[in-house]
């Protein structure tokens, strides 16, 4: 579905990605973890073409529709939740009003936001903003969804709701998901595989069980530090 081959990226002479290679398999949930500032968001932005590699290649399956959930939700402040979610349909398709309303309601229902659909982004909580952003990302029947820290700044219960939502959408809508997160315990609960980035390199890609048992020093350090939080 998504293929990174030896991707390098510099910003003003500072190397952020130093030869990153990995694959995202169709239908899986890949979690990307790693310390702050190691280029996790930069990696996601390469997938959708917001950034282009200095060297190496990023390939995405031909014709794949990709939804992107930004860290802050990136909803438009002057539109209601419903209008935000229907925006991609309205602006990029020629569907009838009824059809737009139907698909919008479907997406809102998928994330459980029917009730707050007519509120403005400033009037709803952080968790709801993320869910609205998610509804907008999937409303055009995305093939893959990229999540940039979908649970940062949320309480553990809401975070768990979002994790379940990621899992459920992935199964129901046959999505491929890439989830950048700082929540290792959460990642272990929903991800098929976990990828660790550090200093612009892939340290390890493994299933959650293997990841927790790994004896690579950087991974061990990360796992132990995460356990300390619990």
């Amino acid at each position: 579905m998504i293929h990174f081959e030896n991707v390098c990226k510099n910003f003003d002479g500072k190397q952020v990605l130093a030869g990153v290679s990995f694959d995202v398999v169709e239908g899986e949930i890949l979690a990307i973890v790693g310390p702050s500032g190691t280029g996790k968001s930069v990696t996601l932005k390469h997938i959708v073409g917001l950034l282009t590699p200095d060297s190496g290649t990023v390939t995405v399956r031909e014709g794949a529709r990709i939804g992107y959930l930004f860290q802050g939700g990136a909803l438009l402040a002057w539109l209601t939740v419903r209008e935000n979610v229907s925006l991609p349909l309205r602006e990029t398709t020629k569907l009838s009003e009824d059809e737009i309303a139907r698909q919008t309601d479907e997406a809102l229902k998928a994330v459980g936001l029917e009730e707050s659909a007519d509120k403005y982004p400033a009037e709803i909580s952080g968790g709801m903003v993320k869910r609205a952003g998610l509804a907008r990302a999937i409303v055009r029947h995305a093939d893959a969804v990229l999540y940039d820290e979908p649970t940062s700044g949320l309480d553990p219960v809401t975070a768990q709701t979002i994790h379940r939502l990621i899992r459920r959408l992935n199964a129901e809508q046959k999505l491929t998901s890439v989830v950048v997160t700082h929540d290792l315990a959460g990642a272990c609960s929903f991800a098929d595989r976990i990828l660790m980035l550090k200093d612009g390199c892939v340290v390890l890609v493994a299933t959650p069980e293997e990841f927790l048992k790994s004896d690579i020093p950087a991974v061990r350090e990360y796992v132990i530090a995460s356990k300390g939080e619990l």
Binding site: K45, V48, L50, I66, G67, Y68, F70, Q71, G72, A74, L75, L76, L87, P88, E91, T92, R136, R140
Partner: peptide, 12 residues
Amino acid sequence: NDEVAALEIMSI
């Protein structure tokens, strides 16, 4: 706030 990038990703 990435809203412009979000528009771009939605092909708007």
